[in-house]
Design a binder for these strands. Structure first.
Lengths: 350, 350
DNA sequence: AGTACATACTAGCACGAGCCAGTGAGCTGT
DNA sequence: ACAGCTCACTGGCTCGTGCTAGTATGTACT
């Protein structure tokens, strides 16, 4: 009964309208009356298929709701043509970078697989998932774990880290010229007449070390006194608010406060308003990242745009190169940082 | 040369230290000197493997850095045991839901595949990706497209929509009791002595229609005059700020403003401060969602917690049930909404 | 008429793992 | 001594697709 000769295979395939089962290439082929391989040629957009046949195949595929099975493609293909991305979705900058990664990867012919970290989902778990799918390279945006730990979890897959240094690793690194950005910011404030410029240094921020270095260098270069408020914790608006309280209780208010991220600037600005201090009338405030909130009309933050698009482009480029087998020493790529002047900075009131 | 009899297969397998190639079950088996099937039994945690053999297999797997190939599992297995989730990562509530979805899906033995929408990445593209991976069910958090469009893109896969109604569809729907939440909020404000309660109605928010309905019902029930400011656009803080401007130019200020989301409340609060109005001294402000920002010390928003965990649980449960083939009419599940009273509401100043 | 070659299509193996149906060794009971 | 059974393990087919190596058919050129 189950041995009907050559017809058996086709019989199985055409009996495919089993509930929930997706159409396969064989289903499409059977419908048109050609071989499965020909359908494959059409979907891979290869030459050597008659125009009329191609159209009939495409029509049948549409009718049957055929869509290629990615798992089968990954399994059979010599490469999976996919890049994995790991990030914390609660931070805005990584999100901006992610959306650009999608675009650049598509251009390069790569698929993007996303795996997020959360409070309860560790980097280890996120990595395992992507390794399971055999991504050809991973892009880690602001990872928390160290090199050894990450490398052990990831195995032989190439890695690109964005927004954080990885000294001594074999990872490629993409970070913005945070030092230059902060340097430019200090000069901007100085040119407005500010001499008392305080810096709010939130740890747990992309490239926070580099940014602080830029502030210090620029202040030293101008012969100005450095004043740094260091804060930790993930809730960066809260950090800004705490900075506001420290400033208010500190006696002498600075003319300008530079925050190393926009969220902190937002919290700072809000909290200072509650103390009756208006920005920029009473105090100038700056952010960093040029996130969505920096452009809000009531904040209108002077900030530094670290060009998520450029970071994404560099990261994808590095990932694709490694996926294609490029050897060589790990590279460190610095992307540009551009000062964005808005209305939260003005000449000091004194 | 390539016909060495029975040894050929093993030769291929053990020649596996080709650069970048991941170990497979066969590699592990060859290392231990057992069959591939036995390795499979170990990794599927099935009975019938000797204790010592099992340990040797696990040790070899660790040494070789073996990890199961998800694509192969999906392809071969009778089911892919994966649920796809589509959402816009720039909104906070979907993020809260997502992180819980990961947990509930894991409990149910399902993998989660994430595909985000962005300004440049349409729902269509996000759907195609997940369909390609043959997710057994999709969870769409606050999708923009309509039923017909979504169903066409998705094909026969079951769908659960979160945070939005889908009248006339065959999708399961999970939404919070937004009406009850708003009702409770109105009563809370009324009990503080407020009679002039304005409502900021941002469209493009989860269940915005239901929430507005709750406000209207409660106000009508108390015999209070309804005052609704309707705003559209994605940038919800901006919407709150615009509402503040409308209120200031309107002449008579309400004693309390209810926003249908926390971000708008934040923007409103900030902008009102710039006009010199302090919350809650001069005006009470409420949000909705109990997002991260609602808990910020300087906002400390009275809001409604719609329990992302509960929504995630319900969504995963529905998705898993459908994936397992449960038939029946589409269900609409309402999850609870709980009033969270903080310090942004107080008795009116007059 | 025969060679050369392009065009349109097909056969068959392979990817890595799941799953069903075995197989052989050792033990028990009669 | 032999059936009956469990335990530990293996053979072999399969999922849906990519890829290499083909086979027909026609058309052009010597």
């Amino acid at each position: 009964m189950n041995n009907e000769g050559a017809g058996a295979r086709n019989a199985r395939n055409s009996g495919s309208d089993r509930i929930g089962r997706r159409a396969t290439m064989s289903d499409v082929a059977a419908r048109v009356g050609v071989s499965r391989q020909l359908v494959g040629l059409v979907f891979r957009n290869e030459a050597g298929v008659g125009v009329e046949t191609r159209n009939r195949i495409l029509a049948a595929a549409r009718q049957l709701g055929y869509s290629p099975n990615t798992a089968a493609q990954s399994l059979r293909g010599s490469s999976t043509r996919s890049i994995g991305v790991i990030f914390n979705p609660y931070e805005l900058t990584p999100l901006d970078i992610l959306s650009r990664i999608y675009e650049h990867a598509a251009t390069a012919g790569y698929r993007v697989l996303v795996s997020t970290t959360t409070e309860t989902r560790t980097e280890q778990v996120a990595i395992d998932e992507l390794v399971g799918y055999r991504c050809e390279a991973l892009i880690l945006i602001a990872p928390k774990a160290g090199f050894v730990e990450l490398r052990r979890a990831i195995g032989p897959t190439p890695v690109v880290v964005v927004g954080r240094g990885m000294p001594g690793s074999d990872f490629d690194v993409v970070r913005s010229q945070g030092a230059d950005g902060m340097d430019g910011m200090v000069r901007h404030l100085a040119s407005l007449g500010h001499r008392s410029i305080c810096y709010v240094h939130c740890l747990d921020v992309l490239d926070s070390d580099v940014r602080l270095g830029g502030y210090r260098r620029a202040m030293a270069g101008l012969g100005l006194e450095q004043r740094v408020i260091e804060l930790s914790g993930d809730f960066t608006e809260e950090a800004g608010a705490r900075a506001a309280e420290l400033l208010m209780s500190g006696g002498d208010l600075p003319g300008a406060v530079m925050c190393n991220n926009d969220l902190a600037a937002s919290g700072l600005s809000h909290r200072l308003l509650q103390f009756g201090l208006h920005c920029p009338r009473d105090i100038s405030i700056t952010g960093y990242d040029d996130n969505r909130i920096a452009g809000l009309s009531y904040l209108d933050l002077t900030t530094v745009c670290q060009d998520p698009n450029e970071m994404a482009r560099a990261a994808v480029e590095a990932a694709v190169a490694r996926a294609a087998g490029s050897a060589g020493l790990p590279r460190e790529i610095f992307t540009g940082a551009r000062l964005v002047i808005r209305s939260s900075t003005a000449a000091p009131s004194v």
